[in-house]
């Protein structure tokens, strides 16, 4: 008897390879921190601007919100916690 695999290993389109060690880049320079602050200020400004213009609000505000979420939870630094799902084998 054969059974189907019930889990996903976190595969996603176009994201099979991800940065393994972001620490090295971060620890040598304050630039990432400054970049985050600048981006954050930009988002806040854009939000304030968008709130005053209904068309811009529709077109931009949502985009900015998504940008903020991406900053909070940066998926592209999102390497799997291990190479396999929790409690599940690497190869079966």
């Amino acid at each position: 008897m054969r059974a189907a695999v019930p889990w996903t290993n976190g595969d996603r389109r176009g994201h099979e390879q991800q940065t393994h060690n972001a620490y090295a880049a971060r620890s040598d320079s304050a630039a990432p921190g400054r970049t985050l602050v600048i981006i954050s200020l930009f988002i806040r400004g854009a939000e304030a601007w968008g709130r005053n213009h209904s068309l811009r609000k529709r077109l931009l505000f949502r985009k900015m919100q998504r940008g903020r979420e991406a900053l909070m939870y940066p998926d592209d630094m999102d390497v799997r916690r291990t190479e396999t799902p929790p409690g599940k084998p690497a190869k079966v």
């Binding site: 008897m1 996903t8 976190g10 390879q17 060690n21 972001a22 090295a24 190479e83 396999t84 190869k91």
Partner: peptide, 29 residues
């Protein structure tokens, strides 16, 4: 300061996900 280990960078590749498990008895599965 960051150590050599801290400075390592690279990429991880996810293992491919098989669709089926190897054949076995229902009890063992």
């Amino acid at each position: 300061p960051p150590s050599e280990e801290d400075r390592k960078a690279g990429f991880l590749k996810r293992d491919p996900r098989p669709r089926l498990l190897p054949p076995d008895t229902p009890d063992k599965l």
